[in-house]
Design a protein around this nucleic acid. Sequence first.
DNA 1: CCCGCCGACTTGATCGTTCCAACGACAGCA
DNA 2: TGCTGTCGTTGGAACGATCAAGTCGGCGGG
Lengths: 343, 343
Amino acid sequence: MSRIPGRVPTTPPTLADVAELAGVSRQTVSNAVNNPDLLRADTLERVQQAIDELGYSPNRAARNLRTRASHLIGLRINAAQEGTANALMDRFVHSLVETSREAGYHVLLFAADHQDPLSGYDDLLRSTAVDAFVITDTYLGNPQAAWLETRRAPFVAFGRPWGVEEPRHPWVDVDGAAGSELATTHLLDRGHHRIAWIGWRRDSWIGEDRRAGWSRALRARGLPTTGLASRVEDTVASGREASAVLLDEAQPSAFVCASDTLAMGVLHTLAERGLVPGRDVAVVGFDDSQVAQVVPPGLTSVRQPLEDVAVEVVKALEGLLGHPPYVGPGVLLAPTLAIRGSS
Amino acid sequence: MSRIPGRVPTTPPTLADVAELAGVSRQTVSNAVNNPDLLRADTLERVQQAIDELGYSPNRAARNLRTRASHLIGLRINAAQEGTANALMDRFVHSLVETSREAGYHVLLFAADHQDPLSGYDDLLRSTAVDAFVITDTYLGNPQAAWLETRRAPFVAFGRPWGVEEPRHPWVDVDGAAGSELATTHLLDRGHHRIAWIGWRRDSWIGEDRRAGWSRALRARGLPTTGLASRVEDTVASGREASAVLLDEAQPSAFVCASDTLAMGVLHTLAERGLVPGRDVAVVGFDDSQVAQVVPPGLTSVRQPLEDVAVEVVKALEGLLGHPPYVGPGVLLAPTLAIRGSS
DNA sequence: CCCGCCGACTTGATCGTTCCAACGACAGCA
DNA sequence: TGCTGTCGTTGGAACGATCAAGTCGGCGGG
């Protein structure tokens, strides 16, 4: 078991190597790593030295096998939508990786099979490759959450379980209504009275939630909403058309949009008509994508606190994977507004 | 070892369970999974049935421990730069996940410690958590590649090893010079004669490479380049300032930029002066970010074939991890041009 | 007829760690 | 002195897979 001195080892040092060098048993080294307070101070010191000298790091596979845990979190990555402004995932993934590292977890990415969106989950679950999942698409009708619940797989959702009475899984979400209310109130404070809404189709719960914030803000000032709202697909072209129609028929002086993608559509219309965003017409988007940050003259946008979302998600994961497992209530976070030239 | 019939197993089925059900030995089941052609047709059939019936999937940890391989690829994710247009990583990550899945690998994300950029690598390496790395930042002076080489860690670089004579590691890159040459030639064909360049600082190899394509295209038509180039930081503000100066001093009718971020800076300057991109002044960016796709009137941009890069990276990984390991020559791919309203 | 070979499958050992039961030393108490 | 309990440590077994070596029956050739 001992290594030939002066020779570069071809395999990494093991627990047994450290034990031999420190003159203790394997279990004592294991305790030094996992339960240091079980050792006497001088023994711990000696073992620590041996660990440092050999550059020992516990073999992941062996530990996983014995403890039946992988310390990996599965995250499905969706095909990047071309032609939309949504860079949400990028920021969230980074925050999640950063936060889970501090909790001792790594993030495992996997792609969905196009025919069977659940196959990826099933595979990782049965081969015990991950301890838990983080799911991000919780629009209604998404089978993931329900399926994972029946499989008793631990998971945390970024997004409310819309339309489900009593969810048995933890979730974290951002208050979309509060976000668009923030945006609308900001425009009202700037003196706008006719503020239009461009959102998503009525069957989108997220879209209706965000829309509610807009109408709430207008009603709070006794302003009407009729004729000022439009519900379309989440594409630049849809936003362009919808804003053109609204400008002709309702003459709004400002737009609040359910996404930066739609807001970019509004900017297209303004450019075509020679109108300057922020001077002639105000525009506010949603998600604070990179697009919003760099497009002239800067697009005011509702910013989701993704760093905080990641923190809450990891907290929920730790509860879920604890002994005994703990499922806390859902967490709803408040967004902020990034104000730029377009308002 | 046998399961109580009619009861839901609390632990996943193992090789031994399958073996018992099929009436064969463990090794035979293992062969059925990994070397099916070693079995007689009828035996294979019987084992397959048992596997399906139990829903068996090999335990990852056990397999990893025995084979000393994790079938995981480590990818470091950098902090998303706020205020830039770079969505390159997003697309590449997705392609890499997709491609490596087909090769039987998963992607493990990790974050760099801010103090010690190598700590993440070291940790994963020593605990044998990943089989190989994919590294993406190969600007000169980046210690990753050199460090990984001394550790004899298998890795593939997306990006040429600039300034290194004989790299001992595989790499895949996109021909930046060809990209800006493509962009410049496109503008020349549209009748532009005075085409300016906005690129990065002289010590950026990537920037100088891209710049070379621009000057090559101009010289091929006998056109001068003097006074038409600017080298700045990769920010929107720098692009804005540089383009303002160039417009005043050299009156170019078109801009080719080393990044979409810089191109957005040009659009800012045009907007401030009431000039319309594509009509009054043409602009071409680099990377085909989401910004380029949605900004009015659409930003023409050099598009890197990231899907192909991922394929080549995974090919190189398979060679690297094969028996015996094979290190092929570097691969250089040609970009394309996504033409939009700005030219 | 016997030997060697080959195909198909089985058996025991092993990867590196953690869990479990047991161990010796020592102290407290009767 | 002897019993009991605690503390720090030990050795053996187990996690679930694969590797290496071995078994067994059948077939062909000298």
